[in-house]
Write a protein that binds this DNA or RNA. Structure first.
Length: 329
DNA sequence: AATTCTCACAACCGCGGGCTT
DNA sequence: TAAGCCCGCGGTTGTGAGAAT
């Protein structure tokens, strides 16, 4: 026998989320952590289905999300990755931790597709540097998958070494206990609520602002959009400014490391103001592990391997700690 | 000024994989 | 082992804003 049925479809509210609903959801998640979405509607009293709650959280309320204004570098990365991975938006999103798969998907559909078409039409397949769709050196998918397997194996070994008791933890910057519990070992809602503090704090702050400055004659959609943007703006800000005072501290520092890594690898700041949740498990399901080989033809594999292994020794859980199954929330 | 068209994006829907009972 | 459920993913739709006419 299975479990009791999911949300009954009657009485389930649809459409744009209101700020009030957002607050309720974030408050709940702050207390219990994300996960067990099925129980969220009943426990919060929200007339939403669990799916909707999860979507709202992962795409908009989760701290660390950057919205809009895709940089040229991000565009290139998306194009590269789309070329390699196809429409596997979640996998692509794992390389842009501040972006959600939905966001990337939308951006692709509305901007990049057209842009690429134009480029292709304009230069007959010459996509210019950074646009690899027709690159002859492109790694075939089979090759890539094999390499990925190898890398995962290597990474696992490195991880176990890094985590072995003999190994001094000096190289591991995640000495912060709260961090270690919230990134590696904690699976799911047992995670310290402090990780979400920034979210709740800033939503509260935002709500104040929203009350003061309610969107003028906004329709439900724009209302929602406006609040989302400001929510996220605040959440992002919070991710940085509260990181030093909350449980997000450790995560923040390690994210900064990864940010540097990304910068060094891609030559741009893809991870500005990283914050507590950007490496949330939603980004790090097995599928979403940073499978370094997909980055692109210009990226020498050895460098990527080195990066992977270096990262493992420095901060293994960040890359690999999500094992084969756990989606930490 | 009113209407129509196009764009952008939030949210929904359906499916598949994996987990629980 | 099988039935049923949950979760996450990708595709699609709905709707408001702004531009064009």
């Amino acid at each position: 026998m299975g479990r009791p049925p999911c949300c009954d479809k009657e009485g389930v509210k649809k459409g744009p989320w209101t700020p009030e609903e957002d607050i309720i959801l974030v408050t709940y998640i702050q207390e219990h952590g994300p996960g067990n979405w099925r129980s969220v509607p009943t426990k919060t009293g929200l007339s939403r289905c669990s799916k909707s709650c999860r979507l709202r959280w992962t795409n908009y309320l989760r701290p660390g999300i950057k919205r809009g204004n895709f940089t040229e570098q991000e565009e290139k990365m998306i194009i590269h990755l789309q070329d390699l991975l196809g429409n596997r938006w979640a996998a692509i999103a794992s390389y842009l931790p501040q972006r959600t798969d939905n966001d990337i998907k939308n951006y692709w559909n509305t901007h990049l597709k057209k842009k690429l078409k134009k480029l292709q039409a304009g230069s007959e397949g010459n996509l210019g540097e950074g646009f690899s769709a027709s690159s002859p050196q492109r790694i075939s998918r089979g090759q890539w998958e094999r390499r990925l397997q190898t890398d995962i194996q290597m990474a696992k070994i490195a991880l176990s070494e890094a985590l072995s008791p003999q190994k001094p933890s000096s190289s591991n910057n995640n000495n912060n206990p709260s961090n270690s519990s919230s990134t590696l070992s904690s699976t799911k809602p047992t995670q310290s609520p402090s990780c979400y503090a920034s979210s709740a704090d800033n939503i509260a702050r935002l709500l104040k602002g929203w009350m003061k400055n309610p969107p003028k004659k906004r329709s439900s959609r724009t209302n929602s959009v406006a609040t989302q943007n400001s929510f996220n703006y605040n959440l992002n800000a919070a991710g940085t400014d509260t990181a030093s005072s909350s449980g997000a501290k450790g995560i923040s520092s390690t994210s900064a490391e990864l940010s540097e890594t990304f910068e060094s690898l891609f030559g741009f700041e893809s991870l500005e103001s990283p914050n507590s949740d950007q490496f949330s498990p939603s980004n790090l399901s097995p599928e979403r592990k940073p499978d370094v080989n997909v980055i692109g033809p210009e990226m020498p594999l050895s460098l990527l391997e080195k990066w992977l292994l270096d990262e493992c020794s420095v901060n293994p859980e960040k890359i690999l700690g999500f094992g084969d199954d756990d989606k930490i929330f």
